[in-house]
C-alpha cells in the first residue's frame, strides 16, 4: 500500500473574485512521479502556489504527510520536507551558481550540503563547470538546472516542479526530464506540472489532466493515447 504524501482535497482558490481552482482534489503517493497536464490557464500554477503556500485557499485543504498546511508560512515548507521549483525559477541572479545551490541547503548543515552538492553535480555536470558564474548570466536551460538543483539541496521528500521545460531548447529539455526521472527513482516523490504532454507520457508514473480549474481525468500515461479526445487535445498540437 502506498502512502499519500501530499493530498489536495476539494480546493477552491482564486484571485479576488476570479475563481481559478474549482474543487480540485489530487494526491501524490510515496515514490511516484506524478504529472499534472493542462493547457495555459487551466489553473496548474495556481494549484502549485496553493501547495507551496504562496497563496491561501478559499476552501478545502492541503495535507502534507497527513498534516494540514493551513496557516503554515511558506518558508516553513522546506523544514517539512517540501521543495518547490517555481515558475520563473526565482534564482539569485547576482550570486554565483555555487552560492545559489548552497542557499538551497539553507536549513541544513555544511556537511549535509556538501554531500548533496556532489549529488546535484552528478545529476547536472554543467553546474559544476559553471559553479563560479553569476546565475543570472546562464542560459535558460542551465538556469532551470540550477533551480532544480537548489530545490534538491533542501533534501525534500516532495519535490514540486512548475513547467521546467518552458522556453528551453529540445536537447536540454530531454536532459532535464531524464534528470527528473532519476530523482524520482532515487525515492523522492515528484509532482510535475507541464504543457508538454509527449514528454510526460514517457516520464510519469501517473497523470492528472486539468481543464479550467477542474480535474477532468486521472490515470496511467497511456490513458492519453487511448482516449481519443484527450489525444486530440494534448497530442495534436
Amino acid at each position: 500500500m502506498s502512502i499519500d504524501l501530499l493530498t489536495v482535497r476539494n480546493v477552491v482558490a482564486g484571485y479576488g473574485r476570479i475563481r481559478v481552482l474549482d474543487d480540485v482534489s489530487l494526491d501524490l503517493r510515496q515514490g511516484e512521479l506524478l504529472a499534472v497536464l493542462g493547457a495555459n490557464g487551466a489553473g496548474k500554477t495556481t494549484l502549485l502556489r496553493c501547495i507551496s503556500r504562496m497563496m491561501d485557499v478559499a476552501s478545502g485543504d492541503i495535507l502534507l504527510e497527513g498534516r494540514s498546511l493551513k496557516g503554515v508560512a511558506a518558508p516553513e515548507l522546506v523544514r517539512l520536507g517540501l521543495c518547490h521549483c517555481p515558475e520563473g525559477r526565482r534564482l539569485f541572479p547576482d550570486l554565483p551558481v555555487r552560492v545559489n545551490l548552497e542557499l538551497g541547503g539553507f536549513i541544513h548543515t555544511a556537511d549535509a550540503n556538501a554531500a548533496m552538492m556532489a549529488k546535484v553535480h552528478a545529476l547536472f555536470p554543467k553546474l559544476a563547470e559553471r559553479a563560479g558564474q553569476r546565475a543570472g548570466t546562464l542560459s535558460g536551460g542551465e538556469q532551470q538546472m540550477v533551480a532544480i538543483g537548489r530545490a534538491l539541496m533542501g533534501r525534500p521528500k516532495v519535490l514540486i516542479l512548475d513547467e521546467p521545460s518552458v522556453g528551453i531548447a529540445h536537447g536540454l529539455k530531454v536532459q532535464i526530464f531524464e534528470a527528473v526521472r532519476k530523482i524520482a527513482d532515487e525515492g523522492i516523490s515528484v509532482l510535475i506540472v507541464e504543457q508538454d504532454a509527449e514528454a510526460l507520457i514517457e516520464l510519469a508514473d501517473r497523470l492528472y489532466v486539468m481543464e479550467q480549474g477542474r480535474i477532468v481525468a486521472e490515470g496511467p500515461p497511456r490513458m492519453i493515447r487511448d482516449n481519443g479526445s484527450l489525444k486530440a487535445a494534448y497530442l495534436g498540437m
Partner: peptide, 9 residues
C-alpha cells in the same frame, strides 16, 4: 520569493 522557497523567513 526565492528566499522563502529555500526556507529563509
Amino acid at each position: 520569493v526565492g528566499a522563502q522557497l529555500v526556507g529563509i523567513r
